[in-house]
Amino acid sequence: MKAMVLAAGFGTRLKPYSLLRPKPLFPVLDRPLLLRLIEQLGDYGFHPILVNCHHLKEQIVDLLGPREHIYLQQEPIELGTGGGMRLAMDFFGTEPVLVTNGDIFHTIDLAAVYRDHCRSGADATLVLHDHPRFNKIRMNPDGRIVDFAAGGSGSRWAFTGIQVLDPALLAIIPPGVFYNSIDCYRYWMTRGKKICGTIVQGHYWTDMGTPQDYLDLHRTLLTREPFRGESPFYRGREVSVADDFQQKDWLCLGSHIRVGRQCRLERVVVWDGVTVPDGTHLIDTIIS
Rank of each mutant, 00 (worst) to 15 (best):
H55S: 14
S155D: 12
I137H: 09
L251C: 07
R36Q: 11
G121Q: 11
N52I: 06
V146S: 12
L170M: 06
A3D: 07
H47I: 00
L265T: 07
T210D: 05
Y185S: 00
N180C: 06
I257L: 06
L215R: 12
V127F: 11
G254R: 03
P66I: 01
C53A: 15
P66S: 09
I108G: 01
D116P: 00
T12N: 11
F92Y: 15
R31I: 03
S255I: 03
M189E: 00
V146Y: 09
D249R: 12
D249F: 08
T280R: 06
G80Q: 06
I70A: 07
A3H: 09
F148N: 05
W157Q: 08
K136I: 00
E225N: 10
V146Q: 07
G121H: 10
T275P: 00
T160L: 04
M189A: 01
T160V: 05
D62F: 06
M189Y: 04
K57V: 05
H281I: 15
L37Q: 15
V99C: 13
L6V: 08
F26S: 05
I172E: 12
L253N: 03
T160P: 04
M1Q: 03
V270N: 09
D147I: 01
Q201E: 14
V274K: 13
A8E: 14
R258A: 10
P167R: 10
S155N: 09
Y214E: 02
Q73C: 09
M189T: 00
L72D: 02
G161A: 02
S288C: 15
